[in-house]
C-alpha cells in the first residue's frame, strides 16, 4: 500500500513534467508567402491578320467592306487592355488618319477606314479574344485610280 501511494504521487509528478515538456519541445516559425500575377497581353501566333478588299471595280462603284482575318490575343484575367495601331505605312501625315493603301508601283493611294475593338478586359491565355477588325473603301476613292494592286501594312500594339 505504501508502495502504491508513492507511485501515485510519482505519476502525478510525471504528468506535470509532461505538460511542461510538450510546451517546451516544439517551436514554430511563420512564413509569409506572396506573389503578384502581372497584367500582360500577347498576340497569339502567327501574330498576323488581314483585311482584304478584293477586286474594286470602278464600273460598279459603291463602298466596299473588307473581309477581315482577325489576329487573336489574350490578356491576364482581369487586366484592362488597350490596342492601338500605327496608321499603316502610307498615311499622308504620320500617325493621322486616313490610312491609305499604296499602288504596287505607282505613287497612288486609296484611303480606307480601319476599326477594331480597342479596349476590354482580359480573361487569361486560356480564353483568347479576337480583334473584331473591320474596314471600308469608299466608292469615290477608287473611281479614278490606276488599275493594279494596292496594299498597306498596319502594326497593332497592345498594352499592358
Amino acid at each position: 500500500m505504501k508502495f502504491s501511494k508513492l507511485i501515485l504521487v510519482g505519476a502525478l509528478g510525471a504528468a506535470g513534467v509532461l505538460g511542461n515538456g510538450v510546451a517546451l519541445a516544439a517551436d514554430t516559425a511563420a512564413i509569409t508567402v506572396s506573389a503578384a500575377v502581372l497584367g500582360t497581353c500577347k498576340f497569339v501566333a502567327p501574330k498576323t491578320g488581314a483585311l482584304a478588299f478584293g477586286n474594286l471595280d470602278p464600273s460598279v462603284g459603291g463602298n466596299v467592306n473588307g473581309t477581315a482575318t482577325n489576329p487573336s490575343f489574350w490578356c491576364t484575367k482581369g487586366a484592362s487592355y488597350t490596342i492601338s495601331d500605327d496608321f499603316g505605312v502610307n498615311e499622308a501625315v504620320a500617325g493621322v488618319a486616313p490610312r491609305r493603301m499604296k499602288h504596287a508601283t505607282l505613287a497612288e493611294y486609296i484611303p480606307y477606314t480601319f476599326t477594331y475593338t480597342a479596349t476590354g478586359t482580359g480573361a487569361g491565355p486560356g480564353t483568347p479574344a479576337t480583334l473584331n477588325l473591320a474596314g471600308q473603301v469608299l466608292g469615290t476613292d477608287y473611281a479614278n485610280v490606276s488599275a493594279g494592286n494596292y496594299g498597306d501594312t498596319v502594326t497593332l500594339s497592345i498594352t499592358p
Binding site: 516544439a26 512564413i31 508567402v33 506572396s34 506573389a35 484575367k77 487569361g124 480564353t127
Partner: peptide
C-alpha cells in the same frame, strides 16, 4: 498562374519544429 486573375496573392504558413 497562367489563367489566374491579375493582382496580389498571399498566404501564411506555420512551420513547427520538434522536439
Amino acid at each position: 498562374f497562367q489563367n489566374a486573375s491579375m493582382g496580389s496573392y498571399a498566404d501564411s504558413v506555420v512551420i513547427t519544429l520538434n522536439p
